[in-house]
Design a protein around this nucleic acid. Structure first.
Length: 273
DNA sequence: AAAAGATGGTGAC
DNA sequence: TCACCCTCTTTTG
């Protein structure tokens, strides 16, 4: 379920398990074998996320650049390391003083060995990331405030904001009562500031819990006496994937539509143009 | 058994 | 705006 929070969590989980130690690297599937041979036995020196991109640093070799795409997954476990199940592109085996670990990567869109310059090039084509401490929303505002494109499309554009996916897009627009079709230039500065800081808070919470929850305490199932969401995404949300169901706040029907090949969800009465 | 669908992104038109 | 890539799970027949 990879939006930006997943990737930042993965970076932290990899650091915790593997950093500062030699790591055995392999590609059971065979599609990363040559690079894995170069990396095998090296010390994992860093792990970093920018938006939906994950970078694993290996001393004296370079960076593994990973993008999970729509279905990619990383699974962690403790030895004994099992025979690979399914298509394991990259397997790391190593350990810290807290114990031994392995990690399996499946189904990524990207898994490649790159140089520091290559890594820099990836950073340069991404917008600010609400989860990166040094980033702020200024560069994003500069683009949004002079764009006739819908704010829904802008939020999904990784050159504008890095790390927001379909769930956070739908939910943050709902939380701020903003119609997804509103043009970027019709957003006010204070609306954008609120959206940016809310994204940072929601995504930080997402990293902590490893799932997306966006419902305010006063609207939770417990607070409102409705059953908790039964959905494989786990988290409580206002509109994402709730098409034709009643809005938690106004009771009106949640709408859905396609926008740039993605499913958009919103409540037309709570979210105003 | 086969198809559809999924929280993403790219490149061709 | 499409087709397409990668994998796994759920739904349909």
């Amino acid at each position: 379920m990879p939006e930006g929070h997943t990737i930042h969590r993965l970076a932290a989980d990899c650091l915790e398990r593997f950093a500062g130690r030699q790591v055995r690297v392999s590609s059971p599937q065979g599609r990363f074998t040559d690079a894995a041979a170069l990396l095998d036995g090296r010390v994992l020196s860093g792990a970093e996320a920018h938006g939906k991109h994950l970078f694993l640093g290996f001393e004296a070799v370079g960076w593994v650049h990973i993008h999970l795409g729509l279905y990619g997954k990383v699974g962690f476990g403790a030895p004994p390391v099992p025979a690979p199940v399914g298509q394991v592109r990259l397997r790391l085996v190593g350990g810290t003083t807290n114990g031994d670990h392995y990690a399996d990567l499946r189904g990524p869109t990207t898994c490649e060995l790159i140089t520091p310059a290559g890594k820099q090039a990836v950073h340069e084509r991404l917008g600010p990331d609400p989860l990166r401490r040094a980033d702020d929303g200024e560069a994003a505002w500069a683009r949004i405030s002079r764009s006739r494109t819908s704010v829904a499309a802008l939020l999904m554009d990784q050159k504008v904001v890095a790390g927001v996916g379909n769930v956070y897009r739908a939910e943050v627009l709902f939380r701020h009562g903003i119609d997804p079709y509103r043009a970027g230039k019709d957003l006010t500065r204070s609306e954008w500031d609120a959206v940016w800081s809310d994204l940072a808070a929601l995504m930080r919470e997402g990293v902590r819990n490893n799932r997306i929850d966006t419902v305010r305490p006063e609207h939770t199932p417990e607070a409102m006496g409705r059953p908790p969401r039964d959905d494989d995404h786990g988290g409580e949300v206002y509109v994402y994937r709730r098409a034709h169901q009643p809005c938690h706040i106004c009771g009106g029907e949640v709408r859905t539509a396609g926008l740039a090949a993605r499913n958009l969800f919103w409540c037309p009465s709570c979210q105003r143009a």
